[in-house]
Design a protein around this nucleic acid. Structure first.
Lengths: 134, 134
DNA sequence: TTATATGCAAATTGTTTGCCTAGGC
DNA sequence: GCCTAGGCAAACAATTTGCATATAA
């Protein structure tokens, strides 16, 4: 039996976590959710919340907002450009091709003028990671 | 004297950190830089690297790639949409207006087809944070 | 000389994991 | 009954901070 065929049980904690995240539009953090869930299941643990958020994400029920990655990275280039992050090795490369203005315009159309900047991160597998076993 | 007028000294550590980050295009993490800097200033400390990266970022000499934020956030909406993150309070709101396809297209033009997804995060101050003291 | 910067270590913060028990199917 | 999930606490990883000393200006 494949690892992905593991049976996903329908537990209280899991159901309540999903309900609570669906109740709000605030994009809660793990421990904001923990606080909410605790009102309904007082003995739930933070570990359970993290484990279930991970599982729900794997199953496409929710999404983890995960631009960024674990460690912060630094960039000597301060001009506008975009980033490609490899989902396997974590490497970041610059995307410097031309549609900068195009994206700029679309973002402006989307967000108005009340913003100070934006960050576009394209994700996928970099060439060297694409050539190894999945 | 304003806090921002603090005199920035020209120290060895600071200069070497900046040189090292400029020497590469790999968007190093703090401890990758620490390893590099250590080759030239063996007794440098990781704390110094972090402190200087922060200062260099404040001064616009480098940029911290900081989509994300410290804690991960979760989203019950799995359809494509974008996020606005308030730089003061950290709140995230969805940007769901229409130029989704426009941005999609521009990203495709930018990155080709070899990607699995992307994340657009617009940053600024949200209305309630805009109305309090800077 | 004096305020800024550093080294070092300890503290914090966010997240993950091991282990043993509970509970869904 | 078996195997996935949960609780709890300890382990981890990344980053920040306090404090005494060093150093640029």
């Amino acid at each position: 039996m494949d690892k992905k065929d593991k049976i996903i049980r329908n537990t209280d904690a899991r159901r309540v976590i999903l309900e609570e995240i669906r109740r709000v539009t605030s994009h809660p953090t793990a421990d904001e959710l923990y606080e909410q869930v605790r009102k309904r299941i007082p003995k739930v643990s933070l570990g359970t919340v993290y484990r279930n958020l991970e599982i729900l994400t794997q199953n496409g029920k929710i999404q983890k907002i995960e631009a960024g990655g674990v460690q912060k990275r630094f960039d000597a280039t301060t001009e506008k450009h975009y980033h490609f992050r490899c989902l396997r090795c974590g490497r970041i490369v610059d995307l410097t091709s031309n549609p900068v203005d195009e994206i700029d315009q679309a973002v402006r159309k989307l967000a108005g003028e009340g913003f100070s900047g934006y960050h576009l991160e394209v994700q996928g597998f970099c060439p060297s990671c694409r050539s190894v076993t999945p």
